[in-house]
Amino acid sequence: MSAGQMHAGQFPVDEDLVRRLVAGRFPRWAGPAVERFASGGTVNAMYRLGDDMAVRLPLVKGGAEDLAMEREWLPRLAPLLPTAIPEVLGSGEPAEGYPWPWSVYRWRAGENPQEGALSEPVLLAKDLAAFVAAMRSITLPGAPAAHRGGPLASLDAETRAAIEELRAIPQEGVDCDAVTAVWDDALRTPDWDGPPVWLHADLMPGNLLVAGGRLTSVIDFGCMGVGDPACDLFPAWNLLPPDARKVFRETLDVDDATWTRGRGRTLSQALIALPYYRKTNPAMARNARHVIGAVLGGD
C-alpha cells in the first residue's frame, strides 16, 4: 500500500472525479460545489454536494456491497426508528473509470461525538439506548446477517493475531496479557440463544451525529442485519464514560452474559483496528486505544 492508504486495492477518489460522476448521472445536481468531507471513515469517501446533499463512494469493493444493501433497507427502516438515518436521494453507477455503484444522500447535520468530550453523556446514553432498543424491536423479514453478528468464537483467530501484532509494537503500551484475559473470559460466556435481532452493528463514534450533546442521527448502515444483541453495545466502551455506561446498560436491561460478550466484541474490534489503522487513520487508532483503556479500567 502507498503511504497514507488504508487498504490494499483502495480506489483513488478526488473532487474532480465526483464532479464528473454527478454531472454524468444527475445533470440537475451538476451545479452545486463539491468538497471532500474529512472523516474517520474506513470504507467510503464522503463529499459534500452543495449545502444539503452528500456523495458517498466506496473506496474498496466491499463498500459497494454495503451501499447496495443500504439502498434496499434504509427506506424500510427509517419509519421504524426514533432517530434520523441516511436517506438515499440517488443511485449512481460505475462511470468515468470508477468501478462501483455510489450514492447521493441527504446531508445530515451534526458532529461526531468524541470520547472524553461529551457535553451530555447521560442523555446521550439514553438516546443511544432508545435507538438500539428500536432496532431490536424491528421484525422486517428477510434480513441479512449482521457483519460480525455471529458467535463470538468466530472472531477468535483474528483477535489473537491482532494481540500478537500489538506485542510486537511495544510503543503502543498495550497490556497484551490483560486483554487476552478479558478476551478469554468473553469466550467462556454462553452464546446468544435467543432469536437474532436487528442491529446497526457498527455503532462507532464516527457513525453517530450529535447536536447539543444529544443524538440526532445514526449513519453508515453497511454492517446492519440480524445477530447477537451484544453487537450494538459498542458505545458503552468506545464512547460513554462509566456513569453514562451504567445508564446505557440499565436502560437496555442488559443481562450479564450479553454485557460480557458486548465488552469482548468491542475489545476485539479495537484490538484488530489499532495495528491496522495506527499509521493511516488517526481517529480509528485513537478510539481503539480508548476502548482498550476503558475495558481494562473496569466493567
Rank of each mutant, 00 (worst) to 15 (best):
L59I: 02
Q114A: 15
P113E: 12
G92R: 02
P75C: 11
E35Y: 03
D16M: 08
P27Q: 05
G92A: 04
G41K: 03
E15L: 10
S39F: 11
Q114L: 15
V104E: 03
L17G: 10
W73H: 09
D51Q: 10
V34S: 05
E35S: 13
L80C: 10
R19L: 12
M46Q: 09
A54E: 06
R71H: 15
L80E: 14
M69R: 13
F26L: 07
A109W: 02
R76C: 14
P27W: 06
V88G: 13
G50A: 03
A84N: 07
V60H: 06
T42M: 11
V104D: 00
N44E: 02
A68R: 15
R36K: 14
R25A: 11
S103T: 14
R76Q: 15
E15W: 06
P27S: 09
A95E: 08
A30R: 13
E87W: 11
D16Y: 00
D52Q: 09
P32Q: 14
L49W: 02
P99L: 03
G90I: 01
E96L: 08
V104L: 12
L81T: 04
V18I: 02
D51K: 07
V22Y: 05
R56G: 07
A84M: 10
R106T: 13
M53E: 12
S91Y: 02
Y47A: 05
E15C: 07
P58A: 04
Y98M: 03
W29D: 13
Y105S: 11
P101L: 00
W73M: 13
E111P: 00
L77M: 03
D16E: 12
S91I: 15
A33C: 01
L21F: 01
P101N: 12
W107I: 07
V43D: 13
G97H: 08
W73L: 10
L80Y: 13
L74F: 14
V104P: 07
P86K: 08
A54N: 03
R76A: 13
E87V: 14
E96Q: 14
W100T: 05
I85G: 06
L74P: 12
E93S: 06
P99E: 06
G31P: 04
R106A: 15
E87F: 08
Y98R: 11
A84Q: 11
G116T: 14
A68L: 11
R106I: 09
N112F: 09
V34L: 06
G116I: 10
T83Q: 07
G63L: 03
R76D: 06
W102G: 03
N112M: 14
P32I: 09
R25Y: 00
L118Q: 12
A45H: 08
Q114N: 12
M53Y: 06
G97S: 05
T83N: 02
D52I: 00
